[in-house]
Design a protein around this nucleic acid. Structure first.
Lengths: 245, 245
DNA sequence: TAGACAATAATTGTATACGATTAGAGATTG
DNA sequence: CAATCTCTAATCGTATACAATTATTGTCTA
């Protein structure tokens, strides 16, 4: 057997390392748990993250929870308001544009480098990623599928072996997850992984230029798949939810 | 009178805001103080930042100092080692390359946007920056001059009004300061601000393409001004310093 | 009944105390 | 004399307690 579908390393803590420059410990654990929960859309933007509550859930004191929340704030996934507490971030429409513009600038370059640097093992890893994503879709776990779709991009960043740019990409991908939760046009359609397959092909052929081009249009596609019209601050209040009952 | 040489806003906390997603308070103060101290090369790479010590200096408890150090760690200026403490970061040669590669990718784009977006007031601000830098050089305060030279780049990032990319640039500039402290070839020569003047000219003419080009070669120049040969980990030990005494 | 005000409850900001880990000096031994 | 070991002092990791701020509920009045 060829170790098919083994969990891509990016599901484990390993794949997230680098975003949080923290010594290993409980603080990092909590960061990672909250991070994946947000990536899988189990924590919606705007949700309050009370220190006591989080601490009780994970069996840690407020000290360590606070450090975790501040770390998440630095990567843009949590916003902390003075004397009010921490909330899952709600990226503005403007920030959404900026995030995808930044991705369109950085990720094609990353893809180019990755195409050159990718080993056969790396390619297997990427393929495992795609397979795992399909599997999640088949199982109906859209949250996980979306999360894996994003993690595919960070996997490429890791392969490029450019730590500085890779960390930027990681942060951008995480925020993209929140942006998608807020502004994605068609919640039903799976993130079309057609581009991911095309990227795989370019990687297999070690075609750096193709990889760069495909990645660029892929990001632009994603950007245009968002509904970023100015509308009146749907503040997620009860008004919308209970309007017609 | 024409308010000449008024302090550019980037000397104040305002200019650094955005890098540290912290609610205003003592934690932010300490972040900013340490940050400017590092930018002005008054804190050398590798220096230990003891929690007690820093706390005593700024009259704060360890709780708040810890938060500040962790924030600085997130922006890459401080490295925290488990059970050992916090130190001013010592970027590796590899990281030095990566930082300047990232700058060469992002900053030209930023310069292009800034050239389009710059108001007359922005241009005056930039000019004030250059003047202040000259002044610092004349006064022999090389630390401040170098710091201002970096802040000139963040000022451009602010003008571009692209918050996401601007924050990335800020982080890269901060790390560049450490890299320059470690690897700059000619410690005597002032950071040749010729390119800065050329940039100013492009901005005044609102020539986006020129600004982009100038910025790109400026960054490449800076990169090549570093001595990044692999040498045996000058660990700053006493052996080198006291070898022939 | 609607609006303003006041008291209470809940949550965060900060300080401090205690346990755990590490670094370094000094003693011990081959 | 050199290397190793042990012990002590200093520093970090974490928990908890208290102070300050905020949000909410309940009450009063026009």
């Amino acid at each position: 057997m060829t170790q098919p579908l083994r969990d891509p390393k990016h599901l484990s803590a390993e794949g997230l390392h680098g975003i949080f420059p923290l010594p290993e410990g409980r603080t990092l654990d909590i960061c990672l748990k909250l991070h994946t929960a947000i990536l899988e859309h189990r924590l919606a933007p705007g949700v309050k993250l009370s220190e006591d509550e989080v601490g009780e859930i994970y069996g840690a004191s407020r000290t360590v929870v606070r450090a975790a929340l501040q770390a998440l704030a630095h990567s843009g996934m949590v916003s902390i308001e003075k004397n009010r507490g921490a909330f899952v971030a709600r990226p503005s429409i403007r920030e959404a544009h900026e995030v995808f513009e930044a991705r369109a600038l950085i990720e094609p370059r990353i893809a180019r480098m990755a195409a050159t640097a990718a080993s056969d093992a790396d390619l297997r890893e990427l393929q495992a990623h795609i397979d795992a994503e399909h599997e999640a879709v088949a199982a109906g776990d859209m949250g996980k599928a979306l999360s894996l779709s994003g993690l595919f991009h960070t996997a490429i960043a890791d392969i490029s072996d450019h730590h500085v740019l890779a960390n930027m990409v990681r942060s951008l991908i995480s925020r993209s997850s929140l942006i998608i939760a807020l502004y994605w046009k068609r919640p039903d359609t799976a993130c079309e992984s057609h581009s991911h397959h095309a990227l795989m092909k370019a990687f297999e052929e070690r075609d750096a230029t193709a990889a760069e081009e495909i990645q660029k249009s892929h990001i632009i596609d994603l950007h245009s798949g968002l509904d970023l019209k100015e509308r009146q601050e749907q503040d997620g209040s009860l008004k919308d939810i209970l309007a017609d009952t």
